[in-house]
Design a protein around this nucleic acid. Sequence first.
DNA 1: GGTACAGTTGACGTAAACGTCAATATAGAT
DNA 2: ATCTATATTGACGTTTACGTCAACTGTACC
Lengths: 133, 133
Amino acid sequence: MEESYTIQQLAKEFRVTSRTLRFYEAKDLLHPTRRGMNRVFGHRDRGRLKLILRGKRLGFSLAEIKEMLDLYDLGDGQVAQLRVTLEKSRRRIAELESRREDVDAAIIELHEGCSQIENILRGKGVGAKEAAE
Amino acid sequence: MEESYTIQQLAKEFRVTSRTLRFYEAKDLLHPTRRGMNRVFGHRDRGRLKLILRGKRLGFSLAEIKEMLDLYDLGDGQVAQLRVTLEKSRRRIAELESRREDVDAAIIELHEGCSQIENILRGKGVGAKEAAE
DNA sequence: GGTACAGTTGACGTAAACGTCAATATAGAT
DNA sequence: ATCTATATTGACGTTTACGTCAACTGTACC
């Protein structure tokens, strides 16, 4: 028996609205089946949703996220297509690695800001001039 | 002599439009001075712009970015204010660290995808070298 | 058989982040 | 003085990613 979810179950689990899930289907990011009128989400769509939301947290647009999701759907097996997918994947990886550098830089700078504030609060403050720069 | 930039110089350097810089000023993210009617951007605004664009790459909204920029403007020096800033900074750091986990996970999965494709391509005996024959 | 409830499809509304266009101003070169 | 380049301020347009009705449709339970 394949585990399946109603639209509300999935929405609640991932803290989105049902509207959002319908929207993602309309945008071809999710592909639930139907039981009568109702959508039935399977294990596969649950996994895709997880990836979608992670993509969003990373600041990708839904169009970009769809691109990335398609990378996992190893196409028709045609070699040319596979090569294209491989190229795209490598570019994505490079992009993400540069993004990680951004994250690290931001963390470091915030840490430095914290240290400065902590020093001031301890009274061992650096001068106002230095703190301003 | 304080180094200064026209709106176009800065726009060109960071590959944004002048409209964007005006928009950021309207949103209180940049604070250029004026020479007559014209905006004059200084070293400080250049630094802020750098942070703004990094924030965008990380998927933060301009409102969130403004919050983060304000963290660097050590307020009025009042202790209560400093404590608030410190708290906010720490929350931002935590957020960024969870974001880094997202980045790492995405990279790993894309790498796995690449490996799979590479194996398929090797299995079919159509590496770049053989295909050239 | 009524009603409560979860689900459906339009259709229109909205906030964010600019793009684009028009009318105008000003500074420097010819 | 006039042309050119670059600047300004509105003001409206656009795309993305949904929110928010409205008007139905089954399904479950009493």
